[in-house]
Design a binder for these strands. Structure first.
Lengths: 351, 351
DNA sequence: TTGTAGGCGTTATCAG
DNA sequence: CTGATAACGCCTACAA
């Protein structure tokens, strides 16, 4: 018997083996495997039993070849130093891929680079990815979007500057989060607050600044524009901005950096100036990266549900690929997610 | 013409299109694509030109189906909180996969878990991975190795406890690195040094302890066993161990934690006890994770060439899969890598 | 050095 | 509801 031969040779059972075992045709097995209609329930059970008995798993290559689909999702991300964002991202995207039986292929990008377009083009051609997930700031790069739309590949963006630019996009209410973060600082008695902006290419930068100014307005605190410094989401830019702020004649009693990396830089600057945190200056960050809880004092910050956002974006992307009715509940899942304020000891009442 | 139809329909060119364009048979095209011998140079050039002209890319599914290979490498890793290790790992493995035209599929594991065997089994069956890369501590889990050898999948381990347990393995001279780290601390005048061990399941723990005791011996410093505390590579275990050490009647003037996570814990403990670093106590870690340079003061630690190790392990694995002669230079690349001492400001001369 | 035939394990088409 | 048969694009074996 051929089936036995296979088993003896440790070969995987094929759809033919299952069909023979169940006494049906391969097409019926195929129907069962793919949850297609038009199979009597009894037949379906019989086939399922055979599948279990033979430990049958469909061959991905054959399936892809025949169906002209790759069942591959591509994740294109910036291969930056800070990795906890990517870690959470990966968890979410991978989770969604697994539940939908898709494979995930990675394409890290080292920015800035002149070869981005080419790199992405060959990535798509080679992997035949059916759709790609683009976390910030990749989803905001015009050349990337151009290549992708030229290749006719559906895209899901995470935290893009312009939600409308992609087929699917998810983001956070970062303005609201920064608003709440600022109110927390204000509630501690600080009125002279330094603010370090993020890289202008990120949606996040504008959102966060907006939330900050909004909070000042709401609380009737005049905005001192000179207390708002440029930053680029890097450690060193945060450190430099902090030096500028802390060496002022009348330095701020609290500094809000728009990400944890820069908040680290602020802490270093404060230490270098022999300032005590939070006694002399309160410090807050944004992102709740792994370092935030490791610093001393632990950093007050904001956590975004990155994993959930990534999972939602990917699920919606796959649903679109499969062609599910857009009326399905998941397809309508909101693109806007809430952030969570994480208060630690780096912020304290004004002394 | 069929070729034109394809172009019009935006379909990828196939091997037939290239063959027709170049005026040869598909087998010749196949030979050129796979760099097989027995093709006249002129013919080869002609085919290459056609490949370029038609933007031909072999269809991975068809190739895999026919050749009965998946061209997939699996990476099974622990999905822990600390991710910079995994980040470096990923870079290396991905790099090697790309240069050899393999795809990388990920399987994060949340430990401890009772379903590890099952998870890995279905991962391999589903992805048909030809080989897997196992970073520590996954490569030391007997049930994992058992499943994999039962499935007859070649394995490359990174920093395993027993290098011989896998087909291929790479590791670092962590004992030597810890020896040098300890000598650095000794050179600063410290003779009363606390040491926090790592999780006993990791090869690293034993190596690092060995390097430490060796350094003490070499420098004729008596080993005070009571200054060696248990730790498990976690932040909290480091913090607790530090409390035990620093509350002693005669506390150590320096503490070596066997990873950065625990060193963070030591720093927190020191701060909580109002001790100044490095004035009251010098602190060193191991791994040079992202946090190390962000802490204040920046942490003295040891950097392992994780990326290079991962790349080497993966390359060797793939070469084995391809069946290259083991005499090839890369195949003989050493399994032992050097570590680098990174001296920062958390260690200073004894006061 | 080059080409031909057959098959890899699915899914799609269309007939029963 | 079910099944025979033809793709899908490539590689291996064997011829020429």
């Amino acid at each position: 018997m051929r089936t036995d031969e296979r088993a003896a040779a440790k070969l995987r059972a094929t759809i033919f083996d299952v069909a023979r075992h169940a006494g049906v045709s391969i097409k019926t097995v195929s129907r069962v495997v793919n949850n297609e209609p038009n199979v009597r329930e009894a037949t379906r059970d019989k086939v399922r039993a055979s599948i279990d008995a033979l430990h049958y798993r469909p061959n991905a290559a054959a399936r892809g070849l025949s169906a002209k689909r790759s069942f591959v999702i591509g994740l294109i991300y910036e291969n930056s130093e800070e990795f906890s964002y990517t870690k959470d991202l990966l968890s979410g995207v991978l989770g969604a891929c697994e539940t939908h039986n898709y494979s995930l292929l990675l394409r890290p990008l080292t920015l800035p680079s002149a070869e981005v377009s080419h790199s992405i083009h060959s990535f798509i051609r080679l992997t035949a990815a059916e759709g790609v997930v683009l976390p910030a700031p990749i989803g905001d790069m015009p050349e990337v979007m151009q290549v992708l739309s030229g290749l006719d590949v559906p895209v899901a963006t995470i935290s893009p500057k312009h939600p409308r630019s992609a087929d699917i996009s998810v983001y956070c209410d970062e303005a609201d989060a920064t608003f709440r973060l600022t109110e927390h600082v204000l509630a501690l008695g600080h009125t002279h607050i330094g603010f370090i902006k993020g890289h202008p290419d990120h949606r996040a930068s504008h959102e966060r600044l907006a939330g900050f100014t909004q909070a000042l307005q709401t609380n009737k605190i005049g905005l001192d524009a000179s207390l708002t410094e440029d930053g680029f989401f890097t450690f060193e830019s945060g450190r430099q901005a902090a030096f500028r702020l802390l060496r002022r004649e009348r330095p701020p009693t609290a500094i809000i950096a728009t990400n944890d990396e820069m908040a680290c830089g602020v802490m270093h600057a404060a230490h270098e100036l022999d300032l005590h945190i939070p006694h002399d200056v309160s410090i807050a960050g944004f992102d709740d990266t792994a370092v935030a809880s490791r610093l001393w004092p632990p950093l007050t910050t904001v956590r975004q549900p990155i994993t959930e956002m990534a999972e939602a974006a990917t699920s919606r992307l796959i649903q679109r690929l499969i062609g599910d009715e857009p009326g399905a509940p998941e397809a309508c899942s909101p693109g806007l997610f809430p952030c969570q304020l994480v208060i630690r000891r780096s912020t304290a009442a004004r002394s």
